[in-house]
Design a protein around this nucleic acid. Structure first.
Length: 628
RNA sequence: GUCCCGGUAGCUCAGUUGGAUAGAGCAGCGGUCUUCUAAAUCGCAGGUCGGCGGUUCGAAUCCGCCCCGGGACGCCA
């Protein structure tokens, strides 16, 4: 299919021109086409002459002249001449007046100019790390927001996407909680049938602290010699040791699927998952139960896998633990290492024979590549896990687990790392008392604030519509505020800013879309319907041209998100589009346009803008509203 | 100590992979509603791009050395 993005078309034309002018250049050529920053220089510019001059050992302006001579821009842009060359060798390009209309027309189809991937791949996206028996809090926000947006981007491009919710649902901490709950149930202080996640969370914390042995405190007390303090701390350590041992016994029972123990565990899982999935649904994050792939699901595979690693000497014993060294990657024929060397080895078995989270993660890669046939695995996880993930990736490659059985190629594994969520004081987001804020409370507040804002501007809206509208606006505000930043940075969580309805926010984009919908409602009231859909685009007014230019690079924006795993590039595109639309809206009457042809052209322009906004927001996982 | 992020307007952030005079939004100042939603729009003001060197026609961007902030560094997950 032919592209509708002028940068893409111009790149092709200039690449051909450069090839023709300099046949001696064999390497790949980047024609460096960019929009002009200032209108006086035209619409676009080619910056390739300067860098090529270096390779060709000639003068940049001579190179530019040769490019200009060979460039055929057809009916897209005005013919180039020596006057098109400026400064050290910039080539300025001015689109022809009628070309924007035909570019828009070529974009105006179901795909909105988005080109499907040439080689559809299977992409696994790891996008949530919920732990059993723990209340969801602000720290659980970014992974599903970013991960779902990335997943949707790949889906939009025609790839097969498999979301994975890597649940923390196994291990000693969970067993500890199970032991605690059984004790409470047997003591009659707890009804497991009606237990809530908050109660589970409390039990988890209690279990955790009851097994923490204060050996440092005891040592200090012994040193200072206070008999009472020593006695208390001895009792504490003994008690904690008992609790710890009970937890270990419970873990053994759990692993053996002892009916009572396993039943309690299942109950914990049920309660946690129902909250987790309800939150996902409310946040419009496409994660359902079928995406669950908990640590427990790997439990049976760990021992055989580790035996395989040991047998093939991929892993070796070091200081009692079993490790996979990743400091000396094999090199291919060209001398490129299979991964960047990492000094710290990857531990896959503890001295006591137990497995670690790295073991499970390697096992997950093995399943994702060998069974799910992943070509690419994307981890949307906290930046602090970076070293751990790099080790796990390297160990998997070394073990051969990351080699896709269908293609024979090593799956591409990437860490889409993100920073912390900070409060407005610049410190990690917490309540005044220092607790983490529950996700439910956070969403409720965003929605409440959105409701108040809608009510303040619209007194006639029904309560049910108000609720639905506020829900959409509140969630859009939260998601957009997260996604519009470079994910690798820490980001500042501020209700005031995300719900300000001004500037680069979710509500601003929703508002732009709602205004477009209102134009069509108005048009229908006037009896104008349908006739515009086949109208010719007549791009005349400056704000029409700006809007058209903002519209065309939609494909590039989506493609860029897939390339960089950075949804903020799409946010930037959409914000720019909404902004240019607002200016157009202000300056160009649509329904009351001076003549029918202009009106129909503008209606079609509005329709295209609205569909791109809706589609782009849907790629981010944000639904639109017909009215606000 | 080693490694990974980050440092751009008073605040929150972009910056198309090295291009022309570094851009938005808040906050500040001043315009624009009998008109398709003013939740908008237009303008003004605001900068040693952490610092110093280097690479070249050209650096916020690449390289080196520092400074500051955050994080991670074998038997927790």
């Amino acid at each position: 299919m032919s592209s509708s993005d002028p940068i893409s078309i111009l790149s092709d034309r200039f690449r051909a021109a450069i090839r023709a002018a300099f046949p001696q250049l064999t390497a790949e050529i980047d024609p460096l086409i960019a929009p002009s920053k200032q209108a006086q220089f035209g619409d676009f510019q080619c910056n390739a002459a300067m860098s090529l001059a270096k390779q060709l050992a000639s003068k940049p302006r001579d190179v530019a002249q040769a490019i200009v001579k060979h460039a055929d821009l057809g009916d897209l842009a005005e013919k180039l001449s020596d006057a098109s060359i400026a400064g050290p060798g910039f080539i300025n390009i001015k689109l022809r007046g009628d070309s924007l209309g035909s570019l828009l027309a070529s974009m105006d189809g179901p795909s909105l100019g988005v080109e499907p991937a040439r080689e559809p791949m299977t992409v696994v996206v790891d996008l949530m790390g919920v732990n059993l028996a723990k209340q969801m809090h602000v720290g659980h926000l970014r992974s599903p927001f970013i991960g779902d947006a990335v997943a949707r981007t790949f889906e939009r491009l025609g790839h097969t996407v498999l979301r994975q919710n890597h649940l923390g649902d196994w291990g000693l901490n969970i067993a500890m909680t199970v032991a605690r709950l059984i004790e409470m149930r047997d003591a009659g202080t707890l009804n497991l049938d009606s237990i809530t996640l908050d109660q589970l969370d409390a039990a988890y914390k209690a279990a955790e602290s009851s097994t923490r042995r204060d050996v440092d405190g005891l040592a200090a007390a012994r040193k200072s010699g206070h008999p009472k303090a020593i006695a208390e701390l001895e009792a504490q350590v003994d008690g904690a040791t008992d609790a710890f041992n009970r937890a270990r016994q419970t873990l053994v029972k759990l692993q053996a699927h002892d009916p009572d123990t396993f039943g309690v565990w299942q109950r914990i899982r049920e309660v946690t998952m129902s909250v987790c999935l309800a939150v996902c649904e409310r946040l419009r994050v496409n994660v359902t139960d079928e995406h669950s792939a908990g640590e427990s699901s790997y439990a049976e595979e760990l021992a055989p896998m580790v035996a395989d690693l040991e047998k093939r000497a991929v892993a070796e014993v070091d200081q009692g633990a079993l490790i996979v060294r990743v400091d000396q990657p094999p090199r291919d024929a060209a001398g490129n290492p299979a991964w960047e060397p990492i000094k710290e080895p990857c531990l896959v078995r503890k001295t006591d024979g137990g497995f670690l989270y790295a073991t499970t993660d390697v096992c997950a890669i093995r399943r994702r590549v060998q069974k799910l046939l992943a070509d690419r695995i994307i981890y949307c996880i906290d930046a602090r896990q970076n070293l751990h993930l790099r080790q796990v990736f390297a160990a998997s490659v070394r073990a051969g687990y990351a080699t896709n059985p269908r293609t024979g190629r090593t799956a591409v594994m990437e860490h889409a790392a993100f920073g912390a969520v900070l409060g407005e004081d610049g410190r990690p987001f917490k309540t005044r008392s220092g607790d983490s804020v529950s996700l439910q409370a956070l969403i409720d507040e965003a929605v409440d604030r959105a409701a108040a804002a809608v009510r303040a501007r619209n007194t006639t809206i029904s309560d049910s519509e108000l609720r639905a509208t506020a829900e959409t606006i509140g969630v859009a505000a939260m998601k957009y505020a997260d996604l519009c930043n470079d994910r690798s940075r820490d980001y500042m969580f501020s209700f005031d800013r995300m719900l300000a309805f001004e500037g680069n926010t979710g509500p601003y984009l929703l508002y732009a879309y709602a205004r477009i919908r209102r134009i069509f409602e108005k048009a229908r009231e006037r009896g104008v319907e349908g006739s515009w859909s086949s109208a010719a685009f007549r791009i005349a007014a400056p704000s029409e041209k700006t809007l058209a230019l903002a519209l065309l690079p939609y494909n590039a924006a989506v493609a860029r998100v897939a390339e960089t795993l950075q949804p903020h590039h799409l946010c930037q595109y959409l914000y720019d589009l909404a902004g240019t639309f607002s200016t157009f809206y202000d300056q160009c009457p649509v329904v009351d346009a001076p003549d029918a042809a202009t009106r129909d052209s503008r209606l079609r322009l509005c329709d295209l803008t609205g569909r791109v906004l809706r589609d782009g927001l849907s790629v981010l996982g944000i639904p639109t509203l017909e009215r606000m």
